[in-house]
């Protein structure tokens, strides 16, 4: 039954995308300017060419690598801080004003200053993405710790469980679901930032490739790279959703897509 449903879903998906491709072809035929709007066939050709050159995979690997590194960095910074802030009033009072003061400044607004500090290269996109992923993960961790049932902590405490064990065996597992949602939000926000950061200040990566081909007025290649960014963004989210399910099988998956 569910398989049939899935197949029907795939059918509708293909039908809609085919219809969209036909409309696109018609408009492209009407515009008659392959630089402005190449037909989908040309974009597919460009995608194939870029893939055969391995250029597409190189740039994708660079961007994905930066993304993973930044996500790891942001988690390593934000999660301990989030646990500290969630567990201690004092820490939260001390640090919260700084967090709330910096949070409205988007990662992208840091690009000019970061360009000056780091120059064009690998560090700039990693810095911008780490910054972009940091806040969702931090806030999610704090919310996760706050959402833990106090009775569980108190019960453990009454039974004389030491603090470190409470953190390891009670707090972390109980706050895992919101925390993983937070990582997904962080990944989404980092992936948005990577394009901006690479577009302006990196000598490689997907964002750079888009801008490079725009400069050459090779629109099919531009569109092929844009599609790649979309597919990879979707794949990253799907992978994290899978991780979510694997790590917290007791929890229904929250749809965080709306918060993008």
């Amino acid at each position: 039954m569910t398989l049939l449903r899935r197949l029907a879903g795939v059918g509708i998906y293909l039908r809609t995308l085919t219809a969209a491709a036909l409309v696109w072809t018609a408009i492209a035929w009407w515009v008659r300017n392959p630089v402005l709007l190449p037909p989908p066939v040309r974009v597919a050709e460009a995608l194939w060419g870029l893939a055969m050159d391995l250029e597409l995979f190189q740039n994708a690997a660079i961007s994905l690598g930066r993304m993973l590194l930044s996500l790891a960095l942001a988690s390593a910074l934000a999660m301990p801080l989030g646990f500290a802030m969630g567990m201690s009033r004092l820490t939260e009072d001390l640090v919260d004003p700084i967090v709330e003061g910096l949070r409205p400044i988007s990662g992208i607004a840091w690009i000019p200053l970061a360009l000056f500090i780091f120059g064009i290269g690998n560090t700039l996109p990693i810095f911008i993405m780490t910054y972009a992923a940091f806040f969702p993960i931090l806030l999610g961790t704090i919310a996760g710790v706050h959402s833990v049932d106090r009775r569980l902590v108190n019960a453990a405490r009454t039974m004389g469980v030491p603090r470190s064990t409470i953190i390891g065996r009670v707090l972390i597992p109980a706050s895992l679901p919101p925390l993983l949602v937070a990582v997904r939000l962080g990944a989404a926000s980092a992936w948005t930032a990577v394009v901006a950061a690479e577009l302006i200040g990196a000598p490689s990566g997907l964002g750079y490739a888009i801008e490079w081909y725009r400069g050459l007025l090779m629109t099919p290649q531009v569109m092929a790279y844009i599609a790649t960014i979309g597919v990879l963004g979707f794949a990253c989210d799907a992978a994290l959703r899978w991780l979510n399910r694997a790590l917290t099988p007791w929890q229904p998956i929250a749809d965080v897509g709306s918060a993008r």
Partner: peptide, 25 residues
């Protein structure tokens, strides 16, 4: 059901990635 695939296909594409096309157009 019919529009959702289209929206879900474009949603993961960040606005900034569209910028080169917007400049072109």
């Amino acid at each position: 059901r019919n529009l959702d695939p289209l929206i879900e296909s474009f949603r993961p594409i960040a606005a900034i990635a569209i910028l080169p096309l917007a400049i072109l157009w």
